[in-house]
């Protein structure tokens, strides 16, 4: 197999006495889809923040596409090909949907003038947002906002897309639509790392599933195997049933 697209080695991060990562190792190959589950407070959001550069680890390295990016700010990582979405969609509310995507195409995607317009237009088409291209992003429905999050990630022309609970809060048919979109993105050769509480959305999409608990991976492998793991069932699935959705 080719060299890893993304590799986290020995990542440790704590806030005071609360550890969110302790000696974490994660690798993602080019074009791969990795789903990450874990109980609330397992460090999933911190993991994304460390990968995307919002958070700097206390120790350990983040390597992306053969380069050590541990000390790079978020915008440089985006330009290097790392797209991400937020759990709670954060569109530029006052700008149109098209402008939202155009900004990504010209900044993260590095496209100029006509090429940026074309990438933005094709991204909207591929993500099913064509009909609302000229609407202010603040006026979108939740599903459309989630689509816009993915579309913005796509428009930065990534080789890796980090999805942070994009299926959360959606109805079943909406989850199915989003899964279709994510699979289409992956079919273009873009690797996906997807944190999600809606487990069946993950199992319908990913090649590999990992379970994060207490700041380290407690399981990592084929989705069916990971979900059958007694520790995972106890840690995560049991709790998810009783506590419901993670809103943190």
């Amino acid at each position: 197999m080719a060299a890893d697209l993304l590799a986290l080695r020995g990542i440790t991060k704590s806030f005071g006495r609360v550890g969110v990562a302790s000696g974490l190792d994660v690798t993602v190959s080019a074009g791969e889809t990795l789903g990450i589950v874990g109980p609330n407070g397992a460090g999933k959001s911190s993991l994304f923040a460390i990968i995307s550069g919002d958070l700097r680890p206390d120790s350990g390295t983040v390597t992306f596409d053969g380069t050590d990016v541990t000390r790079l700010p978020p915008h440089r990582r985006t330009r290097a090909g790392m797209g991400r979405t937020y759990q709670i969609p954060r569109p530029f509310e006052k700008m149109t949907v098209f402008e939202n995507v155009l900004v990504c195409a010209s900044e993260g995607g590095g496209r100029r003038k006509r090429a940026a317009l074309e990438l933005a237009a094709s991204t909207l088409e591929r993500s099913g947002l064509g009909p609302v291209a000229n609407a202010p992003a603040g006026s979108l429905t939740l599903l459309q906002r989630k689509r816009l999050e993915v579309a913005r990630g796509m428009a930065t022309d990534p080789s890796l897309l980090l999805l942070d609970e994009v299926a959360g809060g959606l109805t079943e048919p909406e989850v199915a639509e989003l899964v279709t979109l994510v699979r289409a993105v992956n079919a273009e050769g873009i690797a996906i790392v997807w944190i999600e509480h809606v487990v069946h959305a993950l199992t319908a999409t990913v090649d590999r599933l990992a379970c994060l608990a207490g700041g380290r991976l407690v399981a990592d492998g084929r989705p069916a195997d990971v979900l059958a793991d007694p520790l995972v069932r106890e840690l995560y699935l049991g709790q998810a049933v009783t506590t419901g959705e993670d809103v943190a």
Partner: peptide, 20 residues
């Protein structure tokens, strides 16, 4: 456009690839 985006949400602007 980036100026409007950064004015709206600087953190997200950096995620889309701009340096606030």
């Amino acid at each position: 456009r980036m100026m409007r985006a950064a004015s709206d949400d600087p953190e997200t602007a950096s995620v889309v690839g701009a340096s606030p």
